[in-house]
Design a protein around this nucleic acid. Structure first.
Lengths: 203, 203
DNA sequence: TCGCGTATTGACCAGTCGGACAATGAATAA
DNA sequence: TTATTCATTGTCCGACTGGTCAATACGCGA
């Protein structure tokens, strides 16, 4: 008793969405063909029909994960800041807030990261996503560094961007595993203070 | 045809060691009762004989993982540094080197971290390990911060230690997923430079 | 020497997994 | 209308999982 036809290509998205919901609750391990099918209210045979192998479904799911965790959208509030270190600090806060609101997404990112250590395809895509993520920080880093270069030559924009990414991901690692015991405010203040000291106290 | 007797309590260690080797190669998912037994050259029935449930084996394996990744041993070279910021920078380098030499261990840490998001027992143990890891950095942070307090009040030793941990873990996240493209030297230099600017240029 | 406890094995079980596939239905072209 | 195409279903299969358990061989005290 096969059901009605598909609203065409939407099916793939529908399935990936179901997979994402399953993954948020039970992790990548929980993303089984049958679990996804049940979530999407389809037969598990249909999931196989659209994604020939499970790996492809996992691969499609990675897109969703990277889009919601390793994608940087500079908000207008952040862009409004007057000088660069201030804006960078605000961007850090924005990202930390975002991670706090959706901790489950970050968990998936780390699961895929671990997968990427062994699977080249996944590794490359995560590497590219991290590079894009760094690039957004690098823009601000370039603005504030030339002014400071007379004082300190050893901080490149690239490196500063990488440090910013570390501050965000490191916050997730520490804060999400023990939210009560971690002083988010002090952490953010320290990070911002470190960054602001890079520029020689602007007039 | 049951085999010879056990060299007593060594069996548990032997099994955990086998499980660790399996996990390094195939991840936590690959740690199956049979795979571990095969690695240890035992019957899989014996593994469940010692660890009644698989969860306990996974739990015992967590000890091994935390001991080899989230444990900080301040080497003599680092302790020899003259003033505090210098020593902290050297400690960062030591930890980054260590992670570079054994990337597989860090992968296991992140896998457990992801597990901990949903399993309270694991989460608490990882949180405790991270706290101990921070504590080692906090000691150095306290030494260098009082001198700087007149200048900047908003950086607490706790927060600086957390930032240091972020710099280490963030390095792992970025460098291990894309070793060729990541400039480790520049990253370390930037991190050290940021830290040294905290103290008002010591005499 | 004889038991006795226990470490050890292999066979077994129920469940779940990814995947293959024939059957069936609905939409579309002729 | 009829024929064709293809989305959709449920079933089936082999492989593997965690876990149970009876059978067995070993070490040790009596």
């Amino acid at each position: 008793m096969p059901g009605p036809k598909a609203p065409e290509e939407t099916r793939r998205e529908q399935i990936v969405t179901a997979a994402y919901q399953v993954a948020l609750r039970t992790g990548i391990d929980g993303v089984t063909l049958r679990a996804v099918a049940a979530k999407a209210k389809l037969s598990h045979g249909l999931v196989v029909f659209y994604f020939k192998q499970k790996d492809r479904l996992i691969g499609a799911l990675l897109d969703r994960v990277l889009a919601t965790t390793a994608m940087l959208h500079v908000s207008v509030d952040v862009a409004r800041g007057s000088h660069a270190p201030e804006r960078l600090g605000a961007l850090l806060q924005q990202e930390m807030d975002r991670l706090s609101r959706d901790p489950r997404g970050m968990r998936l990112f780390f699961e895929y990261w671990a997968l990427g250590v062994r699977q080249v395809v996944i590794r490359r895509r995560i590497g590219a996503a991290l590079e894009r993520y760094r690039a957004a920080f690098r823009a601000m880093a370039e603005e504030m560094l030339p002014a400071a270069s007379p004082n300190g030559i050893n901080v490149t924009p690239d490196a500063l961007a990488a440090v910013a990414v570390s501050l965000v991901s490191g916050y997730a690692v520490q804060a999400m595993i023990d939210p009560d015991h971690f002083d988010t405010g002090a952490y953010l203040a320290a990070a911002q203070s470190l960054i602001e000291r890079l520029v020689p106290t602007p007039a």
